[in-house]
């Protein structure tokens, strides 16, 4: 049932993009407001994350009771568990870019539909950063 699987993926993506729009997370100034703990702190993002983790947590608990997903052969669970330097360095670099712009990957990709040049510039640079990692990963001292 590949068509059903694709439809399920499109529906999931739609809910994600709609949720970002409803929650105010497409607005980089609001996201930066949450990160601005020494200024006029905006708690919105904490409420978004609380709602998201609640629903995602219920789904995860249910998934753990299933032998396989409804439409696919197996669950694609993350396998890595080590807390290593690449994890922390990567998260720190991501946080710097997030703080500078107010964009993380989800809202940036969702906001592409607005067609604004700054969003296109951010996403193009993000793709370049991902490609750079793909090229450099073998040369990096840490993986």
């Amino acid at each position: 049932m590949p068509a059903l699987r694709l439809a399920a993926a499109v529906l999931s993506g739609l809910l994600f993009g709609g949720g970002l729009a409803l929650s105010g997370m497409l607005d980089p100034a609001r996201v930066r407001g949450f990160l601005d703990v020494t200024g006029a702190w905006d708690p919105t993002l904490a409420f978004v994350l609380a709602g998201a983790v609640t629903a995602s947590g219920l789904g995860t608990a249910l998934a753990r009771r299933l032998h396989r997903p409804v439409l696919a052969e197996r669950f694609d669970w993350p396998t890595r568990t080590r807390i290593d330097p690449p994890l922390i360095l990567g998260a720190v670099l991501f946080g710097i870019g997030w703080g500078l712009s107010g964009f993380c990957p989800g809202p940036a990709v969702a906001a592409l539909s607005g067609g604004a040049l700054p969003v296109v510039v951010f996403v193009a640079a993000m793709l370049a950063g991902m490609a750079a990692h793909g090229v450099l990963r073998r040369a990096l001292p840490v993986r």
Partner: peptide
């Protein structure tokens, strides 16, 4: 509305996992 939007995002992740396993 931020919490409700968050619920939608979480529902999206739950459906993608439960239906497509991703």
């Amino acid at each position: 509305s931020a919490f409700a939007g968050g619920l939608l995002i979480g529902l999206s992740a739950a459906l993608f996992l439960l239906l497509d396993g991703r």
